[in-house]
Amino acid sequence: MVNLKRKSPPGKKIQLMATCLCDAFFDDVAKATVEVLEYLGCEVIFPDGQTCCGQPAFNGGDWASSRKVVRHTVEVFRGEEPVVIPSGSCTAMLLHGTVLEFEKETDRKQVAELASRSWELTDYIVNGLGINEWPGKFDAKVAFHRSCHTRGSCSGETSLQLLNSIDGMTVVPFGGGEQCCGFGGTFSVSFPNTSEGMGKLKIANVMEAQPDILTSGDMGCLMHLGGLVDRHNKELQRVHIAQILRDALQNGGLIEK
């Protein structure tokens, strides 16, 4: 779905799109993203006017509303710097979704320009900065949920590459890995029963592999799966991949706790 040829290598001064979910619920994921990028020598700019990538309305079928938000986002993230996003889903929205909903719009070039600078976090680390192994230490068995919006992009592979390279970490496979977890943004509230059924299947498959941690590059999936895990009093720790990368650096004494 997403296949973008970019100018490489990009600069180390970057703009962070923290994502609306981190803005509202998961502050530590955004913090971890900053700490990881700064460890790599990046200068992180956080444009204060940022809100959301526009995906809820895009998927909800209200493209006029979505375009309004995307236009705002394009304005907020003006500049030359790469835009780094700790979410495969928001990245896919910028790389593909916005392009689709602006096909017939006169300002589609500005939108495509932002797309050409947008990077999912692990894609930026591996393919942008050329980091192939992650330093530090993290003793754990992790299950990696490859979120659907990274299909057709390299983010699934770059995430796995980094996780597999961490000292002490084992990535455990689980059944039905290619299947959606049932989040799907607005889908999870407009199709609550279907979404729940899909989520329970994912959780059963993950838990059968007995990982210490379930990780993903998308907090949407983890919020949905985590909500089901907590509601049914199960035990499954959920951690965003940015937090794993940050914690590995801390455990290895490479950055302060």
Partner: peptide, 8 residues
């Protein structure tokens, strides 16, 4: 609308 848009 009956799709999570998972792309499978």
């Amino acid at each position: 609308k009956a799709s999570s848009l998972c792309g499978a």
